[in-house]
């Protein structure tokens, strides 16, 4: 069976890490990397690896739209607003890696199925990808009244974009905890830790369930199943300890080690985004194939 063709828009850290991950996919065929700087490390690498490297931005790709059916946008929220419109007109499936939040929020282990026909999906934030599966894992057993997550990442793995607009992280992640995780109310906190050597990404999830609805055994089982589900596309995702129960509160400790593709292992926060992006693209591709067969 032939693979589904994909392109990456953006030749920075995220785009380049995607390039390496897509090279391993059995369902997706990366054909094209699109950037605006022919000297960028990403575009040079793309050429070396034999992909079509377009250095004239999205317009250059739209002249040759047959190059891909699915496009990853790894540019910026601002640029994505323009890209989203053009890619929609061109009939491409879009996986938005920026915080632009044009399309529905997707966490592959939680709500991929209900968004399989969406033309543009958004991956929320790294903290969202790491913690929302666990909020959902609790919520599917006992309704979550309130969920709060704390994401601690190494200073080195927080790029200038994240730093200049850190509110975007807290606001978007909180929304994702509610809309995708299912909590009635969500809150998100992000902390940058400058320790050297850099720390792995750590996330803590606190969930308050409805009074009288706590089922420790079932929640523990649900959390462990979810850990496996996320590990299927983010191998470095793991629970640090057993969940801690206290009345109607459960606390879950997570650690995310990156695959060390383009980005170093400590930046699990970036790895979980690119890994989730590839997972979504693979599900899109399977669906496209299935539709073609019918």
């Amino acid at each position: 069976m032939s693979k589904v063709k994909v392109a990456i828009l953006g030749s920075g850290n995220i785009g380049t890490d995607l390039m390496i991950k897509l090279g391993r996919s059995e369902i997706l065929e990366l054909t094209t990397v699109i950037g605006i700087d022919p000297e960028s490390d990403g575009l040079r690498r793309a050429k070396e690896l034999g992909y079509t490297a377009i250095d004239t931005g999205l317009e250059g790709f739209l002249e040759r739209p047959e190059l891909a059916d699915i496009v990853f946008d790894a540019t910026s929220a601002k640029a994505h607003i323009r890209h989203a419109k053009l890619l929609k007109e061109a009939g491409k499936k879009v996986i938005d890696m920026t915080p632009a939040a044009r399309g529905p929020f997707v966490v592959p282990s939680v709500n991929m199925g209900s968004n399989i026909e969406a033309e543009n999906i958004n991956l929320i934030t790294c903290g969202g990808q790491a913690t929302i599966p666990m909020v959902h894992a609790v919520n599917r057993v006992s309704p979550v009244e309130y969920a709060e997550i704390v994401a601690t990442i190494s200073s080195r793995s927080a790029g200038p974009g994240t730093r200049a607009n850190i509110d975007e992280f807290t606001v978007t992640t909180s929304r994702g905890i509610e809309e995708v995780g299912g909590a009635k109310k969500g809150k998100a906190i992000i902390i940058l830790n400058p320790a050297e050597p850099p720390i792995l990404m750590r996330d803590t999830v606190y969930a308050l369930v409805e009074e009288g609805k706590m089922d420790e055994a079932k929640i523990t089982q649900s959390i462990k199943e979810m850990e496996k589900a996320v590990q299927s596309y983010v191998p470095g995702y793991r629970l640090r300890t057993e969940p801690i129960f206290d009345g109607n509160k459960v606390t879950i400790f997570i650690e995310v080690e990156g695959a060390g593709d383009y980005l170093p292992k400590y930046s699990g926060n970036l790895d979980i985004m690119t890994a989730a992006g590839v997972k979504v693209a693979e599900e899109f591709a399977k669906n496209l194939k299935a539709n073609q067969l019918v």
Binding site: V150, I189, T204, F253
Partner: peptide, 18 residues
């Protein structure tokens, strides 16, 4: 020792458990 910074209160229970 772990050079924990302000705001990392979740590390307290984590380290205590360890």
């Amino acid at each position: 020792k772990r050079k924990v910074v302000g705001g990392q209160e979740d590390m307290i229970v984590d380290v205590a458990a360890e």
